[in-house]
Amino acid sequence: MNIAVLIKQVPVSNDVSVDPETHALVRASSEGMINPADLNAIEEAMQLKEQTDGKVVVFTMGPPDAEKALRDAMALGCDESCLITDRAVAGGDTVATAKVLAKAIQLYGEFDLILGGALSADGATGQVAAMVAEELNLPHVVEIQSVKYKEDQAGKVEVVKKMHDTSFRIACATPAVLSVNFGCNEPRLATLRSKRAAKSKPLVTYTNAELGFAAEEVGIKGSPTVTVDSFQPETKKSAKMLTGTPAELAKQLYDLIEEEKGK
């Protein structure tokens, strides 16, 4: 089973601000890490690979230094990687992003499964995976807990998804796109040895020269939506501060709660 995993490099901390001119994120530090849910996607991919053979290829679209995220992923056992980097594709919304990811996957080769995280820690729309599926005309299941391959069910995988306080066991025809919930498994760790091995694993770089989009199809220009403003919420009120010793404060809290309950 050949598996593509989409990973996004996200800022290590929430320590970002918004540029008042462009409304884009300004990161206090350029340090990035693999989006947490994507580590769970990598783990699912590795387990499938161990069971079925085949290879796992990680893809990321981002600035050139996103190569680090790809090396980290290969240190976790992924076999090959693909960096999509070009000013032309930067700054896109989810539609523009998904278009580029889908094209890169197609250009790279054939896959039985495409896995991603359910939600990124920064943009956090949770839209990209289903959009990639639409662009590639494949079925999808998002926000899943696990994916299994069953020997006797060729052309399908079995997926578990929780929704409406119910756990669904689902058959999904392959090739398919699946997005994996944060925390659904215990991602493996890299070792010194696997980190060293990752340095010599293949990393292909695609720019728009390879992808061949017209300038108005991708990036900010190719995005149907645009961020036009950022603003501070009105501070509605300020809390009445209670004073006293901890014991007195606890008693005041008690009285407030009991009074409200009695209403």
Binding site: T94, V95, G126, A130
Partner: peptide
């Protein structure tokens, strides 16, 4: 919601209209 997001991400892609989340 999980259902709204999952279905309409595809619709937004198909119609090319995009979708603002949340």
């Amino acid at each position: 919601t999980p259902q709204g997001r999952s279905i309409f991400s595809r619709v937004a892609m198909r119609l090319g209209c995009g979708m603002t989340a949340d």
